[in-house]
Design a protein around this nucleic acid. Structure first.
Length: 745
DNA sequence: GGGTCCCCGTTTTTT
DNA sequence: ACGGGGACCC
C-alpha cells in the first residue's frame, strides 16, 4: 500500500532536548512482574529501549508481557506514567490492562496514557480542536447519525440513493479514513464510479457538514489527529517528546491511519513495542493491514523481534490441529506454538470432528454434548459455541431454551445502539447542546407531534438561509406564520420544552432531569402505549439508561463516555453457556469450545471467498485458527450435510478446513455414513485414490434418473454438477443434494 | 402527515 | 422467511 504521507523528511522540532529526568534505577530480577516469565517473555519485558516487535501466538501470555513491561519501565524510573502511551483496540482490553497494571504499580497506573486509539485521539483533539476546524466540545457521531448525514449530503447533490446506496459510499469513506486519506487525496482511481463518479465531492461535503455540526465520526478521530500532527509540527513535537515509551496491543489489527499515527509519535524516542500475531489478523475487511506488522523491521531499523511460542492454554492436540491448519496459509511471519504447560494425559482428548444431517441435528448434538460435560462437572461458564455468522445462533438458542440450559449471546445490537436508547440520547444531546442538528432531526417528531416533511423542510430552509443550527432556526420559524397553525403550535411547544429542560441543567440532578425529559416529552409514554412484543423491553432499557446516568457526574461526561464506549454491559459472573461469533471470541478462552457450521459456503464463508479471493480464504482460515486456539481442553467441530439458508434447503459440503486438520490429532466420529460423504466429497486438489470406488458404489447419476432419498423420498434428477445433484422430489420439491445421499430407485 | 405495500438484501464489527 | 426502507396513495 502506498503511503499517504511522506514521513521521510524530518519534521522540525522546536522543542529542545527532553527535560532532564531522574536516572533510571536498576530493577531487581526478582521483581514480582518478572517472576515466572519464560526467557522470551523476559526479553520482551526487559528490552525497554528501542523498537521491539513481539510476535505472540495465541495463549502465549501477551497481556502479561505488556503489563509487566509497563511495570518494568515505571519501576526502572525510565519515564513518568504520563510519558507512556499504551494503546489497545477495545475498551475491554484497555480496562483489563489498566486493572492489571494497577495491581503491579498502584495508583501510578491512573496517570498512564492508556486507552483505545479512539479515546486517546479524543483526548488529544479536545485540546487542539481548533487546529482542525472543530470546537473542543465536538460531538462524536454514531453510525446511525453518520449515515443519515451522508444521505442528506447525497440528496443535496441530487444523487439517486436508490441507485447509489449511501451505505456503500459510507463504507468507502470509512475505508479511506482508515487509510488516512482526506477528501483531497481521493483521485478518480480511488473513487471509481461510486455514487456516479462523484464520491470525492460527496466525501468533501460530508466532511464540511461534520465541521459545521461540530461533529466527528469515528474515523475522523484518527484522521483529524493526523491532520493536526502534520499541519502543526509544534503540537506533534510536543507529543513526540512526551511519549518516551509506546506500547501497542493487537498490532496486526492496526489500519494505515493508526500506523501513521504511531509512527509519527514514535519518531523521536523510538521506544515502541508492538505486540501482535499475524495469524490472528481477522479484520482486514474493516481496514486492518497485516502489512503493518510484516514491515515493522523496515520501519524501525534495528528492531528487536521476539517470538512468543510457548502456549499456556491449549492441549497439544489442539495446538497441533491449529498449527496444521494455519500452515496452509502463505505469507506468514511464521511461528510454531508449543505446549508450555504439562497436561494431564488422562484429560487430553483429540479434537473431535463430527458430521450431522442438518442444522437442527447439529444443535441437538452440541447441546447433548454440553449436557454430558455438565454431568462431568463442567460449569456452563466453561463452555462456548463459536459461530461464523450471527444467523447460526438461532438453532442453538432454541435447543438451549428447550433443555433449560442458561446461555448468553454476545453480540447483536448493543445497548447504546438500540433505537429507544438512541432516541433518548438524542433528547439528552439536544438539551445539552442545542446546536446538535442531528439530535434535533431525530426527535423533533418523536413521539409524533404532527411535524412532517413540510415542517422540517421549512426549518431547514431557515437554517440554511441564516446559517443557524436547526433548533435556533425552529425557534425563529415559529415566530413567523410560515407554518400552518397545527405544526406551528407543536413546534412552539417542542422548542419551549427543550429550553425549559435546558434551563434546569444546572439546578436539577441530571438523572432527575433525564427522567423528566423522557416523561414530559411523551417518549416513554409512546412505548408504554405500544402493543408490540418488544415495547416493554424498551421501557426497561430506558429505565436502565437513567440508572446508568447515575454513574456520571453530569450529562456532559455521560454523553462523552457513551460515544466512545459503545458496549454491552453484559452481566457477567453468571454461569451461562456463551454463544458468540468467532470474531467476538478473539482474546477469550474457554475449557470447552464448540465450532459448528464447518461447511463450504458457511465457513469459509462464500462471500469472503467471492470478494476476497485467496486473501479472503486465508483470512477465513485465520478465523478458524482463532476458533481452535480459544479452547483449553476440548474442541468439537461439527458440519451438517444439509442446511436451510434463507428458508431454502441446500446441501452442503464439509469445509475444506476439515481436510487441513492433521489426522493424528483428530477424532472423526463416524456417524450415519456422513464421514463417508465428507471424505468422498472433500475437494482434494487431486481426487484421492480411495474416493473413486466410493463414488462408483454410489453410482453415477445423470439427468432423468429416478432416485430415492432417505428424507425426501423419490424423485427425478434434473441436473448434475460434480457430486451435487439437483433433484425434483415427488413430495419435497426441487432440492440440491449430494449424490452420496441418494440411491438409484 | 400517516398508513400500506412492495422490493431488496441477508459475514464478520470496534470505536 | 423476514425485516427495513422507500415509494405511493389516501
Amino acid at each position: 500500500m502506498s503511503d499517504p504521507f511522506d514521513l521521510d523528511d524530518d519534521i522540525p522540532n522546536p522543542f529542545q532536548p527532553a527535560p532532564r529526568r531522574a536516572e533510571p534505577a536498576p530493577v531487581p530480577a526478582d521483581a514480582v512482574w518478572l517472576v515466572g516469565l519464560n526467557p522470551e517473555q523476559t526479553e520482551a519485558v526487559t528490552t525497554t529501549e528501542g523498537p521491539v516487535l513481539v510476535l505472540s501466538g495465541a495463549g502465549t501470555g501477551k497481556t502479561r508481557v505488556l503489563t509487566s513491561r509497563l511495570a518494568q519501565i515505571l519501576a526502572g524510573r525510565r519515564a513518568q506514567p504520563w510519558q507512556i502511551l499504551s494503546v489497545t483496540f477495545t475498551n475491554r482490553a484497555a480496562r483489563e490492562m489498566k486493572e492489571r497494571v494497577g495491581h503491579l504499580v498502584g495508583p501510578a497506573a491512573e496517570s498512564l496514557w492508556l486507552g483505545t486509539f479512539h479515546s486517546l485521539c479524543v483526548r488529544i483533539l479536545r485540546r487542539h480542536a481548533e487546529a482542525v476546524g472543530l470546537k473542543s466540545n465536538f460531538t462524536i457521531l454514531d453510525s446511525d447519525d453518520q449515515l443519515r448525514l451522508l444521505k442528506q449530503v447525497m440528496e443535496g447533490e441530487h444523487i439517486d440513493t436508490k441507485k447509489w446506496p449511501a451505505q456503500a459510499l459510507m463504507g468507502a469513506i470509512q475505508r479511506w479514513k482508515d487509510r488516512g486519506l482526506t477528501p483531497d487525496k481521493i483521485g478518480p482511481d480511488l473513487a471509481g464510479d461510486l455514487a456516479g463518479g462523484r464520491a470525492q465531492v460527496l466525501y468533501r461535503h460530508y466532511q464540511e457538514r461534520l465541521l459545521t455540526l461540530n461533529a466527528a465520526d469515528f474515523g475522523d478521530l484518527l484522521l483529524h489527529c493526523l491532520t493536526l500532527f502534520l499541519s502543526h509540527p509544534d503540537a506533534l513535537a510536543q507529543y513526540q517528546d512526551q511519549f518516551r515509551y509506546i506500547l501497542v496491543d493487537e498490532y496486526q489489527d492496526t489500519n494505515v491511519a493508526q500506523y501513521l499515527w504511531l509512527r509519527l509519535l514514535a519518531q523521536k524516542h523510538k521506544n515502541i513495542c508492538c505486540v501482535g500475531d499475524d495469524d490472528q489478523s481477522i479484520y482486514s475487511w474493516r481496514g486492518a493491514e497485516v502489512g503493518n506488522i510484516l514491515k515493522f523491521e523496515r520501519d524501525f531499523p534495528g528492531a528487536k523481534v521476539v517470538r512468543l511460542e510457548s502456549n499456556y492454554r491449549s492441549t497439544p492436540h489442539i495446538l497441533a490441529a491449529a498449527s496444521g491448519l494455519i500452515a496452509n496459509n502463505a505469507d506468514r511471519l511464521g511461528k510454531t506454538l508449543r505446549p508450555g504447560i504439562r497436561h494431564d494425559p488422562s484429560e487430553v482428548e483429540k479434537v473431535r470432528v463430527r458430521g450431522v444431517w442438518d442444522g437442527p441435528e447439529e444443535a441437538r448434538v452440541v447441546i447433548e454434548e454440553i449436557e454430558a460435560l455438565q454431568r462431568k462437572g463442567c460449569s456452563a461458564a466453561t463452555i462456548a459455541i463459536l459461530v461464523r455468522a450471527g444467523f447460526q445462533t438461532r438453532e442453538f438458542e432454541e435447543r438451549l431454551i428447550t433443555t433449560g440450559i442458561p446461555y448468553r449471546v454476545i453480540g447483536g445490537p448493543r445497548f447504546y445502539e438500540r433505537q429507544e436508547i438512541r432516541d433518548a440520547m438524542a433528547y439528552l444531546r439536544l438539551v445539552n447542546s442545542p446546536d446538535d442538528g442531528l439530535a434535533f432531526e431525530r426527535i423533533v417528531n418523536l413521539p409524533k407531534r404532527g411535524l412532517g416533511d413540510a415542517a422540517l423542510q421549512a426549518v431547514h430552509a431557515v437554517a440554511r438561509a441564516r446559517a443557524f443550527p436547526l433548533f435556533e432556526a425552529a425557534r425563529l420559524l415559529v415566530e413567523t406564520d410560515e407554518l400552518k397553525p397545527k405544526p406551528r403550535g407543536a413546534l412552539t411547544k417542542f422548542c419551549a420544552d427543550v429550553l425549559r429542560w435546558r434551563g434546569l441543567l444546572d439546578d436539577l440532578p441530571h438523572t432527575e432531569l433525564a427522567e423528566m425529559i423522557l416523561d414530559e416529552s411523551g417518549y416513554v409514554e409512546m412505548w408504554k402505549n405500544d402493543k408490540s412484543a418488544e415495547a416493554p423491553g424498551r421501557v426497561e432499557n430506558l429505565k436502565e439508561l437513567v440508572r446508568a446516568l447515575a454513574d456520571y457526574e453530569n450529562l456532559q461526561s455521560f454523553l462523552e463516555h457513551v460515544a466512545l464506549v459503545m458496549e454491552n454491559d453484559q452481566k457477567d459472573g453468571v454461569d451461562k453457556v456463551t454463544i458468540m461469533t468467532l470474531h467476538g471470541a478473539k482474546g477469550l478462552e474457554f475449557d470447552n469450545v464448540f465450532l459448528p457450521g464447518w461447511e463450504e459456503g458457511v465457513f469459509p464463508h462464500q462471500r469472503a471467498m467471492d470478494e476476497g479471493g485467496n486473501a479472503g480464504l486465508e483470512e477465513e482460515r485465520r478465523l478458524a485458527y482463532v476458533g481452535l486456539t480459544r479452547a483449553r481442553k476440548r474442541v468439537l467441530v461439527t458440519f451438517a450435510a444439509n442446511r436451510r439458508i434463507y428458508n431454502q434447503w441446500q446441501s452442503a459440503l464439509p469445509s475444506r478446513f476439515l481436510d487441513e486438520l492433521p489426522a493424528a490429532d483428530i477424532d472423526r466420529d463416524a456417524e450415519r455414513g456422513l464421514i463417508g460423504s465428507w471424505q468422498q466429497s472433500s475437494r482434494p486438489k487431486q481426487p484421492a485414490a480411495w474416493a473413486a470406488p466410493l463414488r462408483d458404489q454410489a453410482g453415477d447419476f445423470e439427468a432423468g434418473d429416478r432416485v430415492f432419498h432417505q428424507k425426501f423420498g423419490g424423485g427425478v434428477v434434473l441436473a448434475v454438477d460434480g457430486d451435487k445433484l439437483e433433484i425434483e422430489f415427488d413430495q419435497a420439491g426441487i432440492k440440491k443434494v449430494l449424490d452420496s445421499f441418494v440411491e438409484p430407485a
